[in-house]
Simulated assay, not measured.
Amino acid sequence: MPTAIELRGLSKHFGEVRAVDELDLDIVDGEFFSMLGPSGSGKTTVLRLVGGFEQPTAGTILLGGEDVTDRPPFGRDVNTVFQDYAIFPHMSVRQNVEYGLRVKRVPRTQRRDRAEEALATVRLEGYGDRRPHQLSGGQRQRVALARALVNRPKVLLLDEPLGALDLKLRREMQIELKQIQRDVGITFVFVTHDQEEALTMSDRIAVFNQGRIEQLATPVELYEQPASAFVAGFVGTSNLLTGEVAGKLLGEDGTFVVRPEKVRMTAPEEAPAPDDRTCVARGVVREVVYLGASTHSVVELDAGTTLTVSHQNTDRSIDAALERRDRPVALVWQRDHLVALAGGAPHPATTPEEETA
């Protein structure tokens, strides 16, 4: 498939800090691509470099096969939606959406038609005459999106645009954003530190760490087959088994991860015998955390580490789960649910001097 964005040897240094470090990346035309990582990992800097808001220290940026490395933002066929939306309060919704077309001197009738089309795309038909202060947070976010889409860019850059919304609205907008992207067929490049957003919307995800990509994969591959301890710890909750603990429980050296939902907790006397398919660990429940839809139990193992077990709150009584605190239990999981990991820090590392998102 043709590429919308090609980054070759891209670097950005702020003094001694390497915010982006010799990055190579291809983003396919028409995909929803997310850059995920902790604060200071380099993802926002990459977005700003693609948008032309920063100049690279080294490397090249190609859009649609054309070198735009030295072009200013207005010379690139991209638009950006920022977290704060930057909507003009003195203008109507329609005037906000039309603004970019006015700058380009598009005729008035054509401006209005394209603005109404863009508002319909983001499901804001009939809102053109309203003022921004009359809109909800989610509606203002859609106005910012419509203003970017009305220019019909080849690439739309989104810098954590859902960060200011409450949880319920954010989840609704995640689904709507993905549907809009499918409808318009534009390449979306989405920056976030929220793993749920990335997993929900993306065709592919790049996990950033200290200016480099730790893993590039589909959401399913990223969650089920993390490439490193860093990715396993940042994307979802993970149980790491390493060193002496791995030797005791698995009979193998190395570092392994098993997700909490793959682990089953049972009474010690009901645990099966470990074999070449089944792993069994014994311990004591130290904490039980009720999360509404699910419950997490933290178990201190006899082998010398702690594991988290997650189960859905369906027909199981939460009172029974709470009563397990300080009681001995056995944990059981299948060996094929273990993932062997490469090296890497298990927790996100940040540098204060680096970018903030």
Rank of each mutant, 00 (worst) to 15 (best):
F256V: 00
P272V: 13
L250A: 06
K248R: 15
G292Q: 12
C279N: 08
V309E: 02
L301D: 07
G247V: 00
S294I: 14
R282V: 04
V284R: 13
T266Y: 01
A267E: 11
V299T: 13
A271N: 07
T278Q: 09
A271P: 04
G283D: 01
T306E: 11
D302A: 13
G283T: 06
S294H: 14
L249H: 09
V285R: 02
A273L: 05
A281S: 14
A273Q: 11
F256D: 00
P268I: 05
T308R: 14
S297T: 15
E269K: 11
T278D: 07
R282H: 15
V258Y: 14
A281W: 00
A293D: 15
Q312N: 05
L291M: 12
T295D: 10
R259Q: 13
V284C: 02
K248W: 01
G254M: 12
A303D: 02
C279P: 01
T308G: 01
L301G: 08
K248C: 03
H296T: 07
Q312F: 07
E261I: 14
S310M: 10
T308W: 05
P274Q: 06
F256S: 04
R286I: 04
T295L: 13
G304A: 02
L250H: 08
V245K: 00
G247Y: 00
S294G: 08
V257Q: 15
P274L: 09
A281V: 07
L301V: 13
K248L: 10
P272Q: 12
E270F: 00
G283V: 05
G292R: 07
P260A: 12
V245C: 00
G251A: 05
V285C: 03
T295E: 12
A246V: 01
T255Y: 06
V258R: 11
F256N: 03
V285H: 02
L307I: 09
A293Y: 11
A271S: 08
P268N: 09
K248P: 03
R286W: 00
R264C: 01
T305G: 00
S297G: 05
M265C: 10
T255A: 09
L301E: 13
V299F: 09
V285G: 02
E261H: 15
L250I: 09
L301H: 08
K248E: 03
G304Y: 00
V245R: 00
R277W: 06
A293H: 08
D302K: 08
T306V: 10
P268G: 04
G247M: 02
V299I: 13
L250P: 06
S310L: 07
D253N: 11
V280L: 03
A267F: 06
R259W: 09
A303V: 07
V309W: 02
S294N: 15
G247R: 06
A303N: 06
